[in-house]
Amino acid sequence: MIEPVAGTVEQCPFCHRTIRGTAEICPHCGAERRFGPTLRESVLTFAVGVTAGPVFMLLIGAGTTLAVLAAAIGGLLGFFVAHSRHAGDRWIKPPGKP
């Protein structure tokens, strides 16, 4: 039997069993390799940016026009924060596992 090359295998970070280095889903526990943010992370940071900017502008009395502008800028900043924070490969826990 042919043994796999050592550089082509790795351990799953959740079940610690050997998997292929190119695997996108662990065949043993179902953990998934992701690149970039999940939809939930993108929506959450966008929502925080859209709400935090206008609230701050309204609290300091800057007016509605600047609050709308702050919402647009905050939404863009939230989107970019999500994508820069999760810019690399990472493993996500399988559904239903603690």
Rank of each mutant, 00 (worst) to 15 (best):
M1Q: 05
V5N: 12
V5M: 03
A6E: 15
V9N: 08
E10G: 02
E10V: 14
C12L: 05
R17H: 02
T18V: 06
R20W: 11
R20G: 08
R20P: 00
T22A: 14
A23I: 13
A23P: 06
I25Y: 09
C26N: 06
C26E: 05
C26S: 08
P27L: 04
H28W: 04
A31E: 09
R33N: 07
R33V: 10
F35P: 02
F35Y: 12
R40N: 04
R40Y: 09
R40G: 01
S42Y: 07
V43Q: 04
T45Y: 12
T45F: 15
A47H: 05
A47G: 10
V50Y: 11
V50C: 08
V50E: 00
G53L: 11
G53D: 03
V55I: 15
V55A: 15
V55D: 02
F56Q: 04
M57Y: 05
L58Y: 05
L58F: 10
L58H: 13
L58R: 12
L59Q: 10
I60H: 08
G61L: 13
G61W: 12
G61H: 14
G61Y: 14
G61M: 12
A62L: 07
G63T: 13
T65C: 01
V68N: 02
A70E: 01
A70C: 01
A70Q: 05
A70G: 00
A70H: 07
A70K: 06
A72I: 13
A72M: 08
A72N: 03
I73K: 08
I73R: 12
I73S: 08
I73D: 01
G74L: 12
G75K: 10
G75M: 11
L77K: 00
G78K: 07
G78I: 06
F79Q: 02
V81P: 04
V81D: 00
A82S: 08
A82C: 01
A82T: 02
S84N: 10
H86W: 14
H86N: 11
G88Q: 13
G88F: 10
D89S: 14
R90K: 09
W91H: 10
P95D: 01
G96H: 07
P98T: 14
